[in-house]
């Protein structure tokens, strides 16, 4: 029974050469880019591509976090509001520490540290209420979405919170500078994506996320600490939101009640377009990155051409989201799940 492993037919082969299902979102993005180029050659100009990727970074980074939450069978609707309230509190923290630390890197570091801490805590709060409080993720994050949104309005007194002009000057490069020709936000997006990919695909934690999303009971029977893993997904989401906020704040140097509106839906859309299943159990960081870029690309193309009014941006995005999921269903449901099994009565 414990014979050694060298001969005999290996019943399981490891990989296929090209998997069209996993490549689908990327192929769609390439098609979209060719379409954009044909409509307006300026689409591929260096300036436009850089601009496009930089703008994708916010949603993209948040969507990387959302990939973990959704893969583990959850949902987080609070990310847009969370981004707004973290922006506001960051600005308040930096303005407050100005007197003590002056205009310098130190103040900005304090702001960033505050942001990371707040993101972590906000995610932890969502996660604990969902797992320990046994409340559906949809309800909890719908609640915190409202709470965060109204908090930022309150802190801004119904108006706008502005970062001190001179601090902004120090902070500015985080959004506007480039390293080796790559804008900092794009660089951060890339780093977060790589970390996310490794975490999801090369660690036990990532495997546990998929297992929990696939079947929570099986996960529990397989000695997985379901509550802990699930809470961690929301913490990761919170940290991703705070990272996105850190690169977003220097862009405008302000926060108001309209900051980050509908980001949660764009993030979820990016995840789903990328091939992650909304009901959980299967997640793809690479797809999420492509999904986020695709959403920005649609807006960008509409800006560059007159074929469709720019006002219809949301409508086009909506069509693309529904089409993406429709294609996934056709493929996934048809090819694999629960099909034609014969078991005795």
């Amino acid at each position: 029974m414990t014979e050694q492993a060298h001969e005999g037919v290996r019943p399981a082969r490891r990989r296929f050469a090209i998997d069209f299902h996993t490549m689908g979102p990327l192929l769609a993005l390439i098609a979209l880019c060719i379409f954009g180029f044909l409509l307006n050659p300026a689409f591929v100009s260096e300036g436009n591509v850089t601009n496009l990727l930089t703008r994708s970074a916010f949603i993209g980074i948040i969507a990387v976090g959302a990939t973990f939450v959704i893969t583990a069978g959850g949902i987080d609707l609070s990310v847009g509001s969370m981004a707004a309230v973290i922006s506001g509190l960051m600005i308040i923290a930096m303005n407050a520490s100005l007197e003590t630390f002056g205009i310098g890197v130190q103040t900005v570091v304090i702001g960033c540290a505050a942001s990371l801490l707040l993101g972590l805590l906000a995610g932890l709060l969502n996660g604990v209420m969902i797992t320990k409080g046994r409340i559906e993720a949809f309800i909890v994050t719908l609640g915190t979405m409202g709470i965060y949104r109204s908090l930022v309005t309150y802190f801004a007194n119904g108006g706008t919170l502005s970062l001190d002009f001179e601090v902004r000057g120090v902070y500015r490069p985080i959004y506007y500078d480039s390293v080796l020709g790559v804008p900092v936000p794009v660089l951060v997006f890339a780093v977060i994506s790589v970390i996310g990919w490794v975490l999801l695909n090369r660690t036990a934690f990532g495997r546990y996320c998929m297992a929990i999303g696939s079947n929570e009971v099986v996960a529990r029977y397989s000695a997985i600490k379901v509550d802990r893993v699930r809470t961690l997904t929301y913490v990761i989401q919170g940290i991703c939101v705070s990272v996105a906020t850190i690169i977003y704040v220097p862009r405008l140097g302000s926060a108001s009640s309209s900051t980050g509106v509908l980001w949660e839906l764009e993030a979820i859309a990016a995840v789903i377009i990328g091939g992650t299943m909304l009901k959980g159990g299967y997640g793809r960081i690479g797809g999420t990155v492509v999904g986020a870029i695709m959403l920005t690309t649609i807006g960008n193309i509409l800006n560059l051409t007159d074929v469709i009014s720019n006002y219809l941006n949301g409508a086009v995005q909506g069509v693309i989201i529904i089409a993406a999921v429709w294609l996934q269903r056709g493929n996934l449901a048809g090819l694999s799940l629960f099909r034609g099994r014969k078991t005795g009565a």
């Binding site: 998929m210 297992a211 009971v217 099986v218 694999s336 629960f338």
Partner: peptide, 9 residues
Amino acid sequence: KGRGLLLNV
């Protein structure tokens, strides 16, 4: 099917 194995994996 309900507790032992992840069917769609």
